[in-house]
């Protein structure tokens, strides 16, 4: 049973990195296509659109962070996996899910906002500051999920 607990805990860490990372990969790719389209005709826009392209990439970083924290708590990074109960393993899985799910959804939606903002910047380069805010708003929810996942992992780690 203790192996099963560790399995679920690692599954949680893997999902946080995998699902949020997949969302970011897709999001950065979408924004990259829009950025390339703008730079084709307006090469001087490269710097501005690059920043907008990178915005949906943060969810992947948050997912990676959660996976690291969870694996550190589990002793996997140190090479000495902890012996944890099934319940604790499931609790780790649950703790990682906010980052995995919200990370994916927010990355895709942030990418859509970034694509729209890239179009805005291509037509109105003077509106770059405002155009950054629209996709940045979506980031709020990824940060909420990151916060909850970190707090939850810390709480689960404290369970004896």
């Amino acid at each position: 049973m203790s192996d099963l607990g560790l399995f679920f805990a690692i599954l949680g860490a893997a999902l946080a990195a995998l699902v949020a990372g997949a969302g970011s990969a897709k999001g950065v790719g979408m924004a990259g296509q829009a950025a390339a389209g703008v730079v084709t005709d307006q090469p001087d826009m490269f710097g501005r659109v690059l920043i907008l392209q990178l915005l949906p990439g943060t969810q992947g970083i948050y997912g990676l962070l959660i996976a690291f924290v969870a694996m550190n708590n589990l002793g996997i990074i140190g090479g000495q996996p902890a012996n944890i109960s099934l319940l604790k393993g499931l609790a780790y899985l649950g703790a990682c899910l906010p980052m995995a799910i919200v990370g994916y959804i927010s990355a895709i939606n942030q990418a859509k906002a970034a694509v729209a903002s890239i179009a805005l910047v291509s037509k109105r380069p003077d509106q770059f500051g405002k155009s950054m805010l629209f996709p940045a708003m979506v980031e709020t929810y990824a940060i909420f999920a990151l916060l909850i996942s970190i707090l939850a992992i810390s709480g689960v780690g404290a369970i004896q």
Partner: peptide
């Protein structure tokens, strides 16, 4: 819909002309 992201971005540039 994502298939046309690059194309739409190019069109946005052309629309200005």
């Amino acid at each position: 819909p994502e298939e046309y992201i690059y194309a739409v971005a190019r069109v946005r540039g052309k629309e200005q002309k």
